[in-house]
Design a protein around this nucleic acid. Sequence first.
DNA 1: AGATTGACTAACC
DNA 2: AGGTTAGCCAATC
Length: 110
Amino acid sequence: MDPNRPPTNFESRVFEATCLIPKGKVSTYGELAVFLGCQSAQAIGQALKRNPFAPEVPCHRVVKTDLRLGGFHGGTEGPYLAKKRNLLVEEGVSFGDDGRVNPEHCHRFC
DNA sequence: AGATTGACTAACC
DNA sequence: AGGTTAGCCAATC
């Protein structure tokens, strides 16, 4: 695989939509999928997991629909999510006891 | 060109 | 309530 490949059209759209999420808020893979006009949140995850613009695109503001953290930096456990959670807290997002984002932080594309 | 994969989701058992 | 199946779609093998 080539990590320095140019972003595809689809990926560019995903990144653009991700940048639209205001600081201190989060969105879901599903919301992005709908916003981009496709029905596969998995495709969104694919684009973000290969995110060539790691901290430049706020991919940490994208979580699963159940408000659990999905993944980060290509991983779905341990330090990956710890880092993601920390970034969100720094932006003002709070978490529940179960490690979920508080629903008040959900952002909706209009 | 075809098969597999995956930072997902919803439905089913 | 928790594990499995099925549907989804772009990238990668």
